[in-house]
């Protein structure tokens, strides 16, 4: 009985405590930098698309909401012909970001994507692609990759040795 009364008193005192509610549209919650929200496709420092169309994100996605088609330009640089994310199915798990070998796909701190029309939640490549490097500035996949895709010649990349002359016997 006494413990019940004590409980009631303690609950009553909460009337004067600070409230935890954040009154959303007027007050905004602080979103941390690693908040997993709207997905973007980033660009490398030179303004080229980072995505190389490797399908790893689509394979990693547990709800299969990423669809893309890879293609190549005349230099042999791969890029997605179309890239579609159905945000009405995305669960913002971030697996796609983890799977991506080129830091192309990233989740950013933005959750305000409500729509009246479900079809508007299907984002195409032009909706996803942003003019920024996102969380990994300065990274350009083709600068460290072994291949020549119009960004640098073979053997001229960072930490890359010149190609071996396979027709020579000299060490």
């Amino acid at each position: 009985m006494l413990s019940n009364l004590r409980t009631m008193w303690l609950v009553f005192v909460h009337l004067f405590k600070k409230k935890a509610t954040v009154q959303y549209p007027e007050e905004k919650n602080t979103l941390r930098p690693r908040w997993r929200g709207r997905i973007v496709l980033t660009k490398d420092p030179d303004g080229g698309e980072r995505c190389v169309g490797c399908y790893l994100c689509a394979a990693a996605c547990p709800v299969d909401c990423i669809a893309l088609q890879a293609t190549e330009d005349k230099d042999g640089r791969r890029y997605p012909e179309f890239f579609r994310i159905n945000f009405s199915r995305c669960i913002f798990c971030g697996y796609c970001e983890e799977a991506c070998p080129t830091y192309a796909i990233q989740l950013i701190p933005d959750f305000e994507m409500a729509e009246y029309n479900r079809q508007n939640l299907v984002f195409e490549k032009e909706d996803l692609l942003i003019d920024s490097q996102g969380k990994y500035p300065g990274y350009n996949f083709y600068k460290v990759a072994g291949m020549d895709a119009g960004v640098k010649k073979k053997g001229e990349g960072e930490n890359e040795e010149p190609p071996v002359d396979i027709y020579s016997l000299l060490p």
């Binding site: 009553f12 909460h14 409230k19």
Partner: peptide, 10 residues
């Protein structure tokens, strides 16, 4: 709501 540190319908 107030007793649970919330605001309730306002």
């Amino acid at each position: 709501a107030l007793w649970q540190d919330r605001l309730g319908p306002n």
